[in-house]
Structures are given as structure tokens and as C-alpha cells.
Amino acid sequence: MNVIEHGRGKPPLDPHLKALENEAIHIFREVAAEFERPVMLYSIGKDSSVLLHLALKAFHPGKLPFPLVHINTGWKFPEMIAFRDAVVAKHGLDLISHTNPEGLRDNVTPFSHGSARYTDIMKTQALKQALDMGRYDAAFGGARRDEEASRAKERIYSFRTPDHAWDPRNQRPELWSIYNGMIHPGESVRAFPLSNWTEVDIWRYIQAEQIELVPLYFAARRKIVERDGMLIWAADKRLELLPGEQVREEMVRFRTLGCYPLTGAVRSEATTLDEVITELEIATVSERQGRAIDRDQSGSMEKKKREGYF
């Protein structure tokens, strides 16, 4: 059968991406139908951009039947916040931005408290606060199983205790595409529609669907400083230079986006989507290489997830 698509002048998706898209839409609809108070965690990055695009597709012609939550640590790239606000306005989204008030009060920064404690207070604890305040019983996230070894074992519906903890040894079996959305009061589920996507799938989908991204993903001359083998963005006054460090300008881009002090840039000349994809295809390091928090110890992601991290 020839399925004729005459849409927005885009060629139809190839069967591989179409299958991934169909699966994600199915998960969105299932969670929205089964849970009372779903929410979507929106982190502004490329995976969140794909996630949001899929959500818009899933509920078309209706609006999203849930709000978005952004955990704002106060240390995001300014370009990310500007992009976030533009996206919210464009699609008429209901976005809740949350910052851990205690962390703010105690002036918890990546520099003063170290990446592990900072991440726990400003991200993990902040996320739990936001979820508790909204009494959300399901939270969508953009995590993929190819990102990290403990993620590879996580279910699409990742069951969480009232403390938001993940118990990897006690996960519900997940067969076919039938999801068990039944929970007791206080318990919740993190739902991952992008579980089966790889990094390359994300980029090819962005290309095929013409999804807008934060410009930081594309190479430009940016102020950076080299620290612990990472290239740190150095255009914020709050970044204090250590002895011997020098700010310089280089052509760099970011493979993942988070808090700028914890996110390493890569040297790159890729200024367009095509060039980024080409660069990716010959990349020999994984995207999480640029994330300081993953490098603390093997199994650190599993530890953080047990504590309630996404």
C-alpha cells in the first residue's frame, strides 16, 4: 500500500525513525490516559526538544494534557533559557520552572560544593520537590537506554517509591508494548518514550522533522577555559579562574547541554545540522564523555537514579 503523505513539504520518515516515533507516541498517549497528574520534565536539550515534538504529535489536534517542569539550577547557559521561553511562547505551553529554594539560600554552586553535592541538591532534590509540589504521579523524561549502562536496564515505565527511589533489582517485568500503570498513592512512574532511541537516531530525527535546537549545539567561536581536561564555557562573571587558567576563544560546540560549569565543549567546525551528523558518525567518544557527573565513579548514574535522579 502506498501511504501518500502530503504534509509540510517534508519527505516521509524512513521506516526506522517512523517505528521509533510510533512507539514514543504510543507511550505518551498511554501515560496521559492512565495517570491522573502527568508532567513532562523539560531540560531544553536536544532530547527534550525531540520529546516535546513527539508529545505535540501524540496529542494533536489537542494541546498537551500536562505541564512541563524545568529544573533551573541557575547555572544553565543563558541561551538555553532564552530558547526555552521562545518554545513555550510558540506552542502555548504550561511551563513550571523550579529552583531548590534551600540551595539558592545556601548559595550552593558547582564550585563551592563540588559537582556531586551540587547535582544532588540543585538537580535531584529540586526535581523531587517539584514533583511533590505538583503531586505528579507520572513524569516523562528523555532518557535513552544507550546513554549509560544502568539506563540500559531501566524499563520504559520506571517505577519509583514515594521517595522517588529506583530499585533496579525490583523492576516490574515489561512485556510486549503493554505497560502496567497501576500504582499505590504516593508512588510514581518515570516514563521514557525515547528509551529505544540512540544518539544518532535523535539527530537524524531532528534533521528529518526540522526541529529547532539551542544554538549551542552548533560550532561557533566561544570563550572557553580548559579545566580538568574539559573545555568550560567562560563567558559568565561567576566563573572564577584558577591560577594558570586562561580564557581563550575557540570554535567549539556542545554535544549535551546541562549546567555550564559541568558541561564540556568539544572543538568542532560543525556549524550546520548536516555537519554535526557527519561529525557524529565518525565520533569515537560517547556524548556523556562531556558530563563531569558521570565520571565520578563507575555506577555513579545508577547511584544517582536510586536516589531519585532522572
Binding site: 537506554r145 544507550d146 549509560e148 549502562a149 544502568s150 539506563r151 540500559a152 536496564k153 533496579p168 533489582r169 523492576q171 528509551s195 529505544n196 540512540t198 544518532v200 563507575s298 555506577g299 545508577e302 547511584k303
Partner: peptide, 24 residues
């Protein structure tokens, strides 16, 4: 070690859960 992503698995040297892998 690449495959056994959970700490308990690395400690006990066994695979205790379904893991999903991607290649092309």
C-alpha cells in the same frame, strides 16, 4: 563489564536483568 550495568551484577559476575543494546 560493558554489559552488566548494575553494581550487583558487577559484584557477583552475573547478569540479573534484561538489558537492551543498540548497534547498527
Amino acid at each position: 563489564l560493558l554489559l552488566d550495568g548494575l553494581q550487583a551484577e558487577r559484584e557477583q559476575g552475573i547478569t540479573i536483568d534484561v538489558a537492551y543494546r543498540y548497534f547498527a
